Computed example of a mutant assay.
Amino acid sequence: MFTGIVEELGEVASVTATSGDSALVAVRGPLVTADARHGDSIAVNGVCLTVVDVDGGTFTADVMGETLRRSALGGLRPGDPVNLERAATLGSRLGGHLVQGHVDGVGEVLSREPAAQWETVRFRLPAHLARYVVEKGSITVDGVSLTVAGVGADWFEVGLIPTTLKLTTLGVRRVGDPVNLEVDVLAKYVERLLGAAPRGEVA
C-alpha cells in the first residue's frame, strides 16, 4: 500500500527483455534504496514493483508482460525520469490517499494551462473509469495523489502546484504523453457492495 506522495524522482538505468514478454528494469533512486531489500515493494510511476536486487543506489525489478501491456511502463527507456515511493508502513502519515499501486488504466495528457502559481492539466479518462472519478475526489496519476478539479465524460483536470511540477514527472509530461491512472479504491468497493446488496434492500 502507498500514499501517492512521491519520495524521489528517480531515473531508469536499463530495461532488459527477459524470457517471454517480460522485462528486468533497473532504476536509480538513492533515497528509496537506502533501506531497500529483496522482496520490498517500490512504486514506479504508480506501479507496485518487487525489488529483486539492490546495487548501491540502484534497484532492479521484474516486470511481467501483463504489466507492460496494461500500464505506461512498457514505454520506459534508459534515462527516463520516474516517480518513486516506498510502501507505507503502519506508522506512516497518510499525506495523500490509499493507493494500491495497481494501475486501472492508461490516460493521456490532453492540455496544459500555466497560471501564476500553478498549472491546470487535463487528462484523457478511459470510459470504464469515468464512474469512479468525481470532482474533489482523489486519483493517482503516475503514482502522484491528486485532487480532481474538474471532470467530464472522457477527461478530468487537476491543478499542479510548483512542488509537484518540480519534484515529479508531471512537471515534464507533454501533451500526448501516456500516464498511469489508479482511481480511488474506496469507490470500487462501494460500487461492489451496492451492486451485491439484495434487491429491495438498502446497502
Rank of each mutant, 00 (worst) to 15 (best):
L160M: 07
P126N: 10
P81S: 05
L76E: 01
S92L: 00
S71R: 05
T89L: 10
G95P: 05
S71F: 01
H128E: 15
G101I: 01
T58S: 11
R86S: 10
D40F: 09
R112P: 01
C48L: 09
A130S: 15
V103G: 13
F59L: 06
R37V: 12
G95Y: 10
V151K: 10
H128W: 12
P114A: 02
T50H: 03
A43H: 03
V121P: 07
L125K: 06
D62I: 05
V133G: 03
G79E: 11
E113D: 14
R112M: 06
A72F: 04
R93A: 07
L84C: 12
Q100L: 14
I161T: 02
E119I: 03
L129S: 01
V103N: 09
W155A: 14
R112Q: 09
V144T: 15
D62A: 08
G65I: 14
N83V: 02
E113Q: 14
L110W: 12
G152Y: 05
W155Y: 15
L110I: 08
S138R: 09
G95Q: 06
E85I: 01
H97R: 13
E85C: 05
D55N: 10
R70Y: 10
N45V: 04
A116N: 05
V51G: 01
T140F: 14
R124F: 08
R131N: 08
G39Q: 06
S111E: 14
L125G: 04
E113W: 05
E85W: 07
R69P: 06
R86Q: 01
G79K: 10
T67W: 13
G39P: 15
S145R: 08
A149G: 06
D154T: 07
L84I: 00
R93T: 01
G150Y: 13
R124Q: 05
D62L: 08
H38M: 15
T58M: 02
T58K: 03
G29V: 02
L146E: 08
L31V: 13
T33K: 04
E85K: 04
R77Y: 07
R131Q: 15
L76N: 00
I139D: 12
R131D: 12
P78K: 01
V158G: 09
G105C: 03
G95D: 12
T60E: 14
A43T: 03
D154A: 11
V148Q: 02
P126L: 14
G143S: 11
G137Q: 02
Y132N: 11
E85F: 06
T33S: 08
V141P: 13
I42T: 08
N83M: 02
L49F: 03
